[in-house]
């Protein structure tokens, strides 16, 4: 191939270079233009409203005698977070619950993606496994408690099992959806140049599925926290998780610590969500424009 351009490089579509610079500039601007203030102030306002409502209910609406149902925020801080013993108890459990959620999430991703890949490779695998993936989703954990507890023990492993039970389905469905919704034109391109099964999977289907996989991951991440708390609740042997503590505090009417536990588990959910969002931006942010509509 001759290396001299058939066309001078300046011959790029009239509008192209400027449009490029313009668009690129605008995108960059918008991303940076969403200033820290614009990012932080709206949720902060909502937070203040929620705290305000909390104080209102606790101090004005609830009678003195019923205030134990919803103690004011400062009481929660005082009792749960400023007291060394209570704080240690809460954070030790939170850490254990976090571990259960993360181990379960990791297993869900490995098993879920593996299953989805197998399903995408052969229709019969999809047909035979998919119904059970759906069933998995509908089994009430409650019904499995004796079986699982007896098999895995009423402790950490069983909690992880509950996480997997809840987080697996969104990983499978979203991965499968992503793998199967590859553009026909791209498939034709690979067929044309003898792209085999593995090549197609690695160079085409998996990258194309990444945005969908992350959608599933975000759902699964939230579900993993719920699963871990529910798991704590059902399988209470060994060191208590945050769900175990919630159960205890609720039955002992330790409202301050109960709300502290709720706040901590929610924070865990938010942290996991943010971590996945950050990872998503790292992996697909450069090429994928999330279709969020123009607002």
């Amino acid at each position: 191939m001759p290396s001299t351009p058939a066309v001078p490089a300046s011959d790029v579509d009239v509008a192209a270079p400027t449009a490029m610079g313009g668009a690129g500039g605008r995108i960059a601007l918008r991303e940076r233009g969403t200033s820290f203030a614009a990012l932080v102030i709206p949720p902060l306002l909502v937070f203040l409203v929620v705290i305000g409502a909390w104080i209102l209910v606790s101090q004005v609406i609830l009678a003195e005698s019923k205030r134990f149902l919803l103690p004011p925020p400062w009481a929660v801080v005082n009792v749960a977070f400023l007291d060394g013993h209570n704080r240690a108890e809460l954070f030790t459990s939170l850490w254990l619950t976090t571990k259960a959620a993360m181990v379960g999430l990791f297993l869900s991703i490995v098993i879920g993606m593996g299953t989805a890949i197998a399903m995408s490779q052969a229709k019969w695998v999809e047909r035979s496994l998919y119904p059970y993936a759906v069933v998995l989703q509908t089994i009430p954990v409650l019904a499995l408690v004796p079986l699982v507890g007896f098999t895995l023990g009423y402790n950490f492993s069983s909690r992880v099992f509950v996480v997997v039970l809840i987080a697996l389905f969104p990983v499978i469905t979203n991965t499968l959806f992503g793998l199967l919704s590859v553009d026909q034109g791209h498939h034709d391109l690979f067929s044309l140049h003898k792209g085999g099964r593995i090549t197609r999977l690695v160079k085409l289907q998996l990258p194309a599925a990444m945005p969908a996989i992350f959608t599933g991951l975000r759902i699964a991440a939230g579900a993993s926290v719920i699963g871990a708390v529910v798991g704590d609740f059902f399988f209470q042997q060994g060191t208590p998780g945050i769900g175990t503590l919630m159960n205890t505090y609720a039955s002992e009417l330790e409202s301050e610590r109960l709300y502290a536990a709720v706040i901590l588990s929610s924070s865990l959910g938010i942290a996991v969500f943010l971590a996945v969002t950050w990872l998503e931006r790292r992996v697909v942010g450069r090429w994928h424009t999330a279709t969020r509509g123009t607002r």
Binding site: M1, P2, S3, P5, A6, V7, P8, A9, S10, D11, V12, D13, A15, A16, A19, M20, A23, G24, I27, R286, W287, H288, T289
Partner: peptide
């Protein structure tokens, strides 16, 4: 790439290219 006049755009992603590019 040079032949079609896309020199200088090698490391751009498709989403930032015009239809012609």
């Amino acid at each position: 790439i040079d032949l079609v006049g896309l020199g200088g755009f090698e490391s751009k992603y498709p989403k930032s290219l015009s239809g012609g590019m």
